[in-house]
Amino acid sequence: MTTRWLTSDEQRAWRAYMAATLLLEDTLDRQLQQDAGMPHLYYSILANLSEAPERRLRMTDLAERSKITRSRLTYAVARLEKDGLVRREQCPSDRRGSVAALTDEGVAVLERTAPGHVETVRASLFDRLSPEQVGQLEEICARIAGGLVGGAQDGGGPEDLPWKRRSTPCP
């Protein structure tokens, strides 16, 4: 198989994308660490739970919404649980499954932190774009995400998605 090297235009676009995403994630992490003492991933977990019916999600569904492995989610939820922001419950329909539930304290943290987070997102991203560019950004990102979820890259299938990966058991 012949390597399809990036063209000069593609290389510049790739590097600009990488710089922007890394800088944006760092900016969001710094703001959330300062305002809530947590990284962006933990805030996203709380936000996903806040949007779920009864503020509860099965751990597998939460991993999928968060686009992370189940083991990474388990670690994050354990930390959030220790801080009193989330509680784990047994899944009523599946004894092997568990549910993450947002606590009232978790809701309070979101309510305190959301205004600063939204302002950071707006100032760092949307205030720099025209309305037309916002639409283009959504279209581009949705196309990329859809291709990756559909397994279009490297012939991967649904089992290769982060939230579907199984940890290798220790011997």
Rank of each mutant, 00 (worst) to 15 (best):
M1C: 12
T2N: 11
T7E: 02
S8T: 13
E10M: 13
E10D: 08
Q11P: 08
R12Q: 13
W14N: 13
A19M: 09
A19C: 03
A20S: 14
L23K: 15
E25F: 12
Q33R: 12
Q34H: 10
Q34S: 12
Q34A: 13
D35Y: 08
A36V: 02
G37K: 01
G37C: 02
M38H: 08
H40Q: 12
L41Y: 14
Y42P: 03
Y43I: 09
Y43D: 09
L46R: 00
S50I: 00
E51D: 07
P53D: 12
P53Y: 01
E54C: 04
E54S: 13
R56F: 00
R56G: 00
R58D: 05
R58Q: 08
L62W: 03
K67M: 10
K67L: 09
K67E: 11
K67V: 12
I68L: 13
T69L: 01
S71I: 12
R72D: 11
L73S: 00
E81K: 14
D83M: 09
D83K: 12
G84H: 09
L85V: 02
V86Q: 03
C91L: 06
S93K: 10
D94V: 00
R96V: 06
G97A: 05
S98T: 15
V99Y: 04
D104G: 08
E105N: 10
L110H: 10
R112Y: 03
R112W: 01
P115D: 00
P115N: 00
P115S: 03
G116W: 00
V118K: 03
V118E: 09
V121E: 09
R122D: 06
A123W: 00
A123K: 15
S124D: 01
S124W: 01
L125W: 01
L129A: 06
S130A: 10
S130P: 10
Q133A: 13
I140D: 14
R143L: 14
R143G: 11
R143K: 14
I144H: 07
A145E: 14
G146F: 05
G150I: 02
A152P: 05
Q153N: 11
D154G: 08
G156K: 15
G157V: 12
E159D: 14
E159P: 01
L161C: 08
W163R: 00
R166V: 07
S167Y: 05
T168F: 07
C170P: 15
P171H: 10
